[in-house]
């Protein structure tokens, strides 16, 4: 079952920033938050998306849902190009695509009851408040593991994990097909995080959902994903099924990322044993020439400074953008 539900082709989002003096920068500059990215998400799968802060994960997630407009490139949903369709036509797709955010506190309107929060997407899409809507909301509440008496209560009366359940109920009430989970479990304590990860997996099975799972915790991503995409400074640098990418990563950045994950047992301490990449992630405003990873890459070659490597199939289902694998 590998029918793509989402296909992104050459997708870019550039922001015009600056003009102010914050970084001593007077001239307006172009920030390439997402730069010519192509990939697919298959129906029913979970694609994990990882990379360091600021590499463009959230921007990419928002682009797929057309919450922001791409600078160039196309997005196909279920085989239909949705990049340039009008508002009315987009409405039909909107209900099939939802997003769950990191911050269970900020994402919910504190003045709305749980019932109104979950019903809102239904109402926006034409449902009348009443017995039928209430029934759907109650069903959703039960699905995410909250009691019906939660309906009349307000977000502040719930713990972080419960609020995330409310956010999930709201995202799922329209029975969407694609959910972008943007750091959906990142703010939660590990014991509660495990509850929500289990819930997301149960709901995926029950409702046939497709997930784009954005997170910075590599072990959570490994657990929940079928395939994983790695981003660095606006580019997707590697995509493979999860077993391959964790056991035999090809891109030096993916290798460094995995090597940096803390050991899960003191006998496997990494200090002095695993290679570290030096330095910080460069500014997205002024990314390095050629391969954007060349300033930190332990295998850098002259060609890397000049030419950007393209994302190519290195093995069946395993794509990587690096001159090492090109040769």
């Amino acid at each position: 079952m590998t029918t793509p539900l989402v296909t992104a082709s050459g997708l870019s989002k550039h922001f015009e920033v600056g003009g102010g003096g914050f970084f001593g920068l007077r001239k307006a500059a172009t920030l390439k938050a997402v730069d010519e990215v192509s990939f697919t998400i298959n129906a029913g799968e979970t694609l994990g998306l990882v990379g360091e802060s600021g590499c463009g994960k959230s921007t990419l997630g928002r682009l797929l849902l057309r919450l922001i407009e791409p600078t160039s490139g196309t997005i196909a949903f279920d085989g239909n190009d949705i990049t340039r369709i009008g508002r009315m036509e987009m409405r039909g797709y909107r209900r099939s695509m939802q997003i769950i955010f990191q911050d269970p506190y900020g994402a919910l309107n504190p003045r709305m009851s749980v019932e109104d929060i979950i019903a809102e997407p239904l109402v926006i899409h034409g449902a009348k408040p009443g017995a039928e809507t209430r029934k759907q909301v109650t069903q959703m509440l039960e699905k995410v593991g909250l009691p019906a008496r939660a309906l009349d209560r307000f977000p502040h009366e719930f713990s972080g994990g419960q609020r995330q359940r409310i956010g999930i109920a709201r995202a799922l009430v329209l029975h969407p097909r694609l959910i972008v989970c943007d750091e959906a479990v990142s703010a939660l304590d590990v014991s509660v995080q495990a509850q929500i990860v289990n819930l997301l997996q149960d709901l995926q099975r029950e409702m046939g959902l497709t997930y784009l799972f954005i997170a910075h915790d590599l072990s959570v991503v490994r657990h929940i994903s079928d395939r994983v995409a790695v981003m660095y400074l606006g580019k997707v640098v590697e995509v493979a099924d999860k077993k391959t990418i964790y056991a035999a990563p090809l891109h030096p950045y993916t290798q460094a990322l995995i090597a940096a994950v803390p050991a899960q047992h003191p006998a496997q301490r990494s200090r002095g044993r695993r290679q570290r990449i030096a330095g910080d992630i460069p500014s997205a405003l002024n990314p390095p020439s050629g391969c954007r990873f060349h300033t930190r890459c332990p295998h850098v070659m002259p060609v890397c400074r000049e030419r950007a490597p393209e994302l190519r199939e290195a093995a069946a289902g395993h794509q990587v953008a690096c001159h090492l694998t090109d040769i």
């Binding site: 994990g161 509660v192 509850q195 289990n198 072990s219 959570v220 490994r222 657990h223 964790y246 899960q264």
Partner: peptide, 24 residues
Amino acid sequence: RGLLECVPSLTEDKPRLVAIPGTL
């Protein structure tokens, strides 16, 4: 024990995470 069990592994597949019910 619960804290250690609820963390997913970086090398092994677990069908399901062992969560601790409730909250602090």
